[in-house]
Design a binder for these strands. Structure first.
Lengths: 243, 243
DNA sequence: GAGTGGTCTAGACCACGAG
DNA sequence: TCGTGGTCTAGACCACTCA
């Protein structure tokens, strides 16, 4: 027995692919679509949720459902330095930054490899594009490496932006983990995404040449718009001795 | 106003964290939980869907909802050779493999960098663990590099397994892209996952030292159980000239 | 057959956006 | 204010698992 929401999603997906529904165009209201497809509104909404997760449709509360322009636009490039250098997170028009001082706890202890309650600075970044938030990053830095220094004094947003762009001692290693999970309530609010969407959760640790973890980043990207790319140039044609 | 499904999910999450609900334990039936929390069944189910997406709860049709054992267990390690060498996809108890011959089309053309309709071999792998499927991989190889050779003759599953483990000419580069998206109907069936879960979609291209793409892999992992790890050893302390 | 989750219905009421 | 999507209700019927 065919699942009705899948049938509806297939039909709409087809209409988008063939150009019957054009990029940027508004779909009929959910109520009307429900009548047309002869299903209840929850069923129709679950069909739209599929297309939304695929990045084909964008829902805007109070306005309607829109065919999204082409493919995914937010790109995280792994293996680099900080997410905000060298365009690793795609050109953000505006970045809102703030810092907080706190002690290491939970997985941050393991991630940074520091003793519990070590002084850290949290740098919270919300990147915007086209007036919409499109990524959320929490960067944790040992206090002595932070822009405020040991004191942990407040730092202006402008100064923080400059600090993120400054050159740093060379890194030896980047470790990254990528997961898909439902957004937390704060994240649905900050990113203005539906709670039925998954987010890409990127956890990143940067290790310097002395083996110290100089930065840990928790990055959250909306699953309908984001890709993470990783490029690994393999070192040398020899040293191929694995099991 | 608090969202009821979030309140319920928070409460159950807390019970799991504090050990009131133990690992492997069955939760009360959805009908009973709905009565206890004084919500309708769809609302209660949406609360469970959140916990399922977080990997805390596993739903089994006809049996119930169970507290999952600890953390995510399926690990994809990026940057390596093929996904099935050197345990890059965690130890699979059983792998079902089959091949199909086809011509390159769609994104495969771009991914492999071959002319349209070039002969390819598709190797379909379904990995099982604990009797449950836990990953789905489609590996595309130019026909002349495939285990069947130019002829495209059928190859036994055993021979395919051996072929995947064989050493290959050295690679120069691995390109990987990770995305979260809802599962396609075939994927919910093959992986036996709920359609409300996201999957981790890993697309991978392996380039040899001549610049030829010798393999492209489309890997689908259940979002509630899977992590992708990437480790990048940065080459040298110099060459830090970026803009 | 009894109990479970999977899908769906036909509404209700609230919150957001634009005129 | 009106139309939109967001959340929720109180059921129904089907499919799966196990005794």
């Amino acid at each position: 027995m065919p699942i009705r929401r899948q049938v509806i999603a297939d039909d709409l997906r087809n209409q988008i692919a063939t150009g019957q529904l054009k990029t940027g165009e508004r779909l009929p209201s959910e109520a009307l679509l429900a009548v047309q497809y002869e299903v209840s509104t929850p069923t129709l909404r679950s069909a739209l949720a599929l297309l939304q997760g695929e990045g084909l449709v964008e829902k805007i509360h109070g306005k309607g459902n829109f065919v999204r322009h082409g493919r995914r636009r937010i790109t995280y490039v792994g293996g680099g330095r900080t997410p905000f250098r060298a365009g690793q997170i795609v050109s953000a028009e505006r970045i809102t930054i703030s810092t907080t001082n706190l002690g290491a706890e939970g997985h941050l202890v393991a991630l940074l490899g520091v003793p519990p309650h070590s002084p850290l600075t949290e740098i919270l970044c919300i990147c915007h594009e086209d007036g919409m938030p499109h990524s959320l990053a929490r960067i944790y830095v040992p206090r002595d490496l932070s822009p405020a220094g040991e004191s942990g004094a407040p730092v202006s947003e402008q100064r923080l932006g400059a600090w993120l762009g400054e050159p740093r001692p060379p890194l030896a290693e980047i470790r990254e983990r990528v997961t898909a999970r439902p957004p937390k309530p704060e994240e649905t609010a900050a990113l203005r995404i539906s709670s039925s969407l998954a987010v890409l959760d990127v956890t990143r640790a940067a290790v310097d040449t002395t083996g110290r973890v100089v930065e840990a980043t928790l990055l959250v990207l909306p699953g309908d718009r984001a890709d993470a790319y990783f490029l690994n140039q393999l070192p040398s044609p020899q040293a191929e001795n694995d099991g």
